[in-house]
């Protein structure tokens, strides 16, 4: 690692101020950032740790939605998202227990790894990403692999996820990293079904419109039986070809529908 200082603000305002200095970078749970720093692939002048900001911690139910503070760990979401069991189950399957005790939902959403789990939940839930400056609809927030609507220095303070009638997340793991080779989050709301896919596309997390339409009129695995997923622009790597990922998108979607509760 190169050398840098670590700031530990206790309020969002102080964190925003600290991030104003040149080459300062936000630090969530660090489960992705710290390995990156070890490889000397980043050289921030300072890291601004967000985990000490109490306003960014915890889960609360608000009407029909679940609000999660940006610095809430995966383990805390597991324990606190009982009103949204599919989300709790997703959190319980991110990384490993030690990673879940440090990694945060805000960090995951800000990083927007194309194989991460939370982006699929946020997009399928029609979540609202709340920052120190504004609220961003999930449909506007995810802008491609590692790319989001966040501005320089903007902090995810929380995320609000409308709780669906039923939902489920199916993750087919990349066997080495245990990230999603393909992950599909299906959420059924009164006004329709949303399906978000992670791990598969060069464009990052995305919705599968045909499946949403089919499942909105008939929420059963049979409804997608005749759909096909194009392999165009899907990821091909050591662990799976675009065609394999396309196949898995459909299989995982069907399984998520069957398992939804």
């Amino acid at each position: 690692m190169y050398s840098f200082d670590i700031e530990r603000p206790t309020s969002v305002a102080d964190a925003v101020a600290a991030l104003g200095s040149e080459d300062a970078q936000a630090l969530g749970g660090g489960q992705t950032l710290i390995p990156t720093l070890k490889q000397r692939l980043a050289s921030p002048s300072a890291l601004v740790s967000l985990t000490g900001i109490s306003d960014m911690q915890g889960t609360t139910s608000e009407g029909g939605a679940l609000r999660i503070g940006g610095a809430t760990t995966h383990a805390a979401v597991m324990a606190g998202a009982s009103s949204y069991p599919a989300l709790a189950a997703l959190a319980a399957n991110i990384g490993d227990p030690a990673v879940r005790n440090r990694g945060t939902i805000g960090g995951s959403l800000a990083n927007n790894d194309p194989s991460a789990c939370y982006p699929a939940a946020a997009l399928a839930s029609g979540a609202t990403i709340i920052t120190n400056a504004r609220e961003i609809a999930a449909d506007d927030y995810f802008q491609g692999m590692f790319d989001t609507a966040l501005e320089e220095g903007e902090i995810i303070t929380g995320v609000t996820l409308p709780v669906p009638e039923v939902a489920n997340y199916q993750k087919f793991v990349q066997p080495a990293s245990r990230f999603a080779l393909v992950g599909v989050f299906v959420a059924k709301y009164a006004d329709g079904v949303r399906v978000a896919v992670t791990g598969a596309s060069n464009e990052g997390v995305h919705r599968w419109a045909e499946a949403e339409a089919a499942l909105s009129s008939n929420f059963s695995a049979d409804a997608i039986a005749d759909l096909t997923v194009s392999a165009d622009n899907l990821i091909g790597d050591l662990h799976g070809s675009p065609e394999y990922r396309a196949h898995l998108v459909k299989v995982m979607t069907g399984r998520a529908v069957k398992a939804a509760f």
């Binding site: 530990r8 630090l27 660090g30 489960q31 740790s49 985990t51 030690a98 990673v99 440090r102």
Partner: peptide
């Protein structure tokens, strides 16, 4: 349980 190689001691 935490991976001590992925946490700064300051934290």
């Amino acid at each position: 349980a935490v991976k001590s190689c992925t946490m700064f001691v300051i934290e």
